[in-house]
């Protein structure tokens, strides 16, 4: 490579990732008045004026949108993808806390329903039989019973103290802090930590 070409390459600033791809931030769009989340009967709907490929704004209506957390276990209110009914992404809500309270409530409600996760308050019993473990727990919605297959692998350890138990149907149960559990409950789950 000749010297002149080398210097030319050096002079050109490297492009940042954000110059290459664009994340449609729906929270910003809502703030700018370009997007409105609303309730269409039992579904969450979105009406928005977003930029299309050519950079022009175009108003569109989605009477059913889906929400999907990009980092579900970390911060439940950040980076929520909004998808249409064919699962194509419309945009991302960067931080739900930026959205005005009424709309935010709608979105939170939808998230709450989608990621329905009872919190385990106490463990009454874990019985291991034939490769399944049968759990009897006390949760925030009352006593529950469920069955877990391949117990060790069905526990998502988010941190060393925060766990999610996934039962064989795919339902999730959260233990926000294992040290908050009473001693008896802790003893029972200790084996799987």
């Amino acid at each position: 490579m000749s010297d002149s070409r080398k210097s030319e390459a050096n002079n050109r600033p490297a492009s940042a990732l954000r110059d290459v791809v664009k994340i449609v931030k729906l929270d910003d769009e809502v703030a700018a008045g370009n997007a409105v989340f609303y309730k269409n009967k039992d579904f969450l709907a979105l009406r928005a004026k977003l930029e299309n490929e050519n950079g022009e704004r175009e108003e569109k209506n989605w009477d059913r949108v889906f929400l999907h957390r990009a980092f579900p276990f970390d911060d439940p209110y950040e980076y929520i993808s909004v998808l249409d009914k064919d699962q194509n992404e419309i945009g991302i809500i960067g931080d739900l806390r930026n959205i005005e309270p009424n709309m935010r409530k709608l979105i939170e409600e939808e998230l709450e329903r989608k990621y329905y996760t009872p919190t385990i308050k106490a463990i009454k019993q874990i019985k291991e039989r034939y490769g399944f473990s049968h759990w009897k727990v006390e949760t925030d919605i009352g006593p529950l019973q469920f069955t877990v297959q391949d117990t060790y692998r069905s526990i998502i350890r988010v941190t060393s103290t925060r766990l999610f138990v996934v039962d064989m149907n795919g339902n999730r149960y959260e233990i926000p802090d294992i040290h908050e559990l009473d001693r008896k409950s802790y003893r029972m789950i200790e084996l799987y930590l």
Partner: peptide
């Protein structure tokens, strides 16, 4: 028009 009849957890899937 699509309507929602009910919700359920995975247990009833």
């Amino acid at each position: 028009e699509v309507v929602l009849i009910t919700r359920f957890t995975n247990a009833c899937r």
